[in-house]
């Protein structure tokens, strides 16, 4: 510093300008080498499984199966049962129906009480390939809404208005067809509560490195 103070004004100015020239050149080099700042790399985010964007309903109704030409062997009752032979249901001590082993895939869980533990509340005992309502109407196996509606009035009313369950296709009816899903497209008639499922992945933050610890806040 002593040295600098003793210099004349011109010499000092020259000295400052020389240093600045050097600094500018150094800076130019550093800019060209891109020594700091942003790197264009992003943290990878896996593409979401296409199952999560499938519009399929959670199950196939009898109507869906028949329409799509799928395997309808489940509805051919008389492949095993004998026609015109009355069928006796067996119940356990609790009053729950005993599901025969041939129908082990059926989980009985319709309603929270035991009254609905009777196959012939809905199936016609004289013709197993038909459904029957409490008021004695006989319905095809693919005609679930009318059957379900005979008990679930308000829900049936909503369904008829297109408000319960999904209505797909065109909201504007004159521009294209609508596709009404029926009760059994979503509900298993023997165990109707809507099934739980794996949720699709949640959102990824824009700056995971910065706020990885900041973003996660789960109260579960």
């Amino acid at each position: 510093m002593q040295f600098i103070c003793e210099m004349s004004a011109t010499v000092k100015t020259n000295w400052v300008l020389r240093v600045l020239t050097a600094l500018f050149l150094g800076l130019a080099m550093a800019f060209l080498c891109n020594g700091w700042g942003y790197s264009a790399k992003l943290f990878p985010i896996p593409l979401v499984d296409t199952n999560f964007i499938s519009t399929a309903t959670v199950r196939m109704s009898a109507a869906d199966l028949i329409r799509s030409g799928g395997d309808t062997s489940d509805f051919e009752c008389y492949a095993c049962h004998e026609r015109n032979k009355p069928f006796k249901l067996k119940f356990d001590a609790e009053g729950d129906v005993l599901v025969p082993k041939e129908h082990a895939n059926i989980v009985m869980g319709h309603g929270r009480h035991h009254r609905n533990n009777n196959c012939f509340n809905c199936h016609d005992e004289t013709n197993l390939e038909l459904l029957q309502t409490r008021d004695g109407r006989h319905l095809k196996i693919s005609d679930s809404p009318a059957l379900c509606g005979s008990c679930h009035g308000p829900t049936y009313r909503d369904w008829e208005a297109g408000v319960h369950g999904r209505t797909s296709g065109y909201w504007k009816r004159d521009l294209g067809p609508i596709d009404r899903k029926v009760c059994t497209s979503c509900h298993n008639p023997h165990s109707p509560p809507f099934p739980s499922r794996q949720p699709a992945p949640g959102p990824h933050p824009l700056h995971p490195a910065v706020d990885g610890k900041l973003i996660a806040r789960s109260e579960s």
């Binding site: 004004a9 000092k12 100015t13 000295w15 400052v16 300008l17 240093v19 600045l20 600094l23 500018f24 800076l27």
Partner: peptide, 14 residues
């Protein structure tokens, strides 16, 4: 300006 002026302006320019 004088040397201080240049130094100051140079610093700001950087």
């Amino acid at each position: 300006g004088d040397s201080r002026y240049y130094a100051w302006m140079g610093f700001l320019s950087i």
